[in-house]
Design a protein around this nucleic acid. Sequence first.
DNA 1: GCAAGTTCCGTACGGTCGTGCTTTTCTGTT
DNA 2: AACAGAAAAGCACGACCGTACGGAACTTGC
Lengths: 197, 197
Amino acid sequence: MGKGEETRLAVLDQAVEVARRVGLSGLTIGSLAEQAHLSKSGLFGHFNSKEALQLQVLERARERFEEEVARPVLRAPRGEPRVRELVDRWLRWDAAPGGCPFVAAASEFDDQPGAVRDRLVRDQRDLFDMITTVFRTGVAEGQFEADADADQFAQDLYGVMLACHHAARLLGDRQAEQRARRAVDALLAGARSRASS
Amino acid sequence: MGKGEETRLAVLDQAVEVARRVGLSGLTIGSLAEQAHLSKSGLFGHFNSKEALQLQVLERARERFEEEVARPVLRAPRGEPRVRELVDRWLRWDAAPGGCPFVAAASEFDDQPGAVRDRLVRDQRDLFDMITTVFRTGVAEGQFEADADADQFAQDLYGVMLACHHAARLLGDRQAEQRARRAVDALLAGARSRASS
DNA sequence: GCAAGTTCCGTACGGTCGTGCTTTTCTGTT
DNA sequence: AACAGAAAAGCACGACCGTACGGAACTTGC
């Protein structure tokens, strides 16, 4: 890895942290350069446009999410344990200072067309697909009701995470995470296959 | 109402619409002035600072929410009908072009201290209080389990709304609202008092 | 240890931001 | 109709934004 690549990654890692707090459009070349001990033009040279920077920040955040959440989850036993592993890791990811960068970015760009929004939509779709897949695996294992709606489960679970994010972050509610876990319990209880007959 | 007050309100109403799309920090004096057919300084004179403008936008949004959602809800029959009325009106409010202005503002300011954030927290707390009150009324009516957790219900319901907001707005999912209603059904089913013995 | 190429800095430009000041235009009252 | 006060315009400012370009400083391969 050349020197350039090295500093580029360092800048991106820093930028992801900043974006958690101020969002993608809150990022500025100047302040990022300052934090990286670079000149504005020095930093700019690595990206050539602000939009490219934002896209790469998004990509880096996605990589991190896959490392810390998505991939490890697939190593947990199929079905309910895997769902719980997902929730655990997701909550941990979300609890990082500044919260989840995608949540911040999502509400910024949900009405602003462009490459960033497109990328964001793709990532969010992938996330939903990941959830439904994990859930459907549980169905295939016979742990969840055969006619349970995976898309419904995904949206519900996402809502639990968002509510936790907001309650904890904005309102400073210490019990938000605990409530989120209870909500997941209820979700799972509703999906669990009844031992009928 | 003098002329000044009249244009001030017109500007604020316009600003609320804009803030739904670009957030509170996305508001700029210049573009607002253009839309209001005013000069920058002409508009600025009504607020004297951008932060004051943001605060007044927040206040106007709150007024609107109370008119369109909070107050009418209290006229619905206590208990489950009232909860459903809340969900109905809230979904309608949220479906307005640009979505809910508070959702946009909340993730912008959840990590940026200041008067705007403080105001936002207050409003959000009031919203949660409203939900818990509506729910507890249902408990008092005997429609919901006596030991049901109103705070849990509020966070869950808020999550349903947020998930709907994001799925519909960012992902363009047409079925998001329908899923939200199903989620509310499940929530209510879980809270409904069992006709035991 | 020198040449080639990458990495970074200095500086500058046009633009927009929020914000003051002064002056003109409009409103409402007597 | 005249006048006092409010409302809006005009203009200027300093700051910061993203972007561009040329040269200095450093790496790297030979």
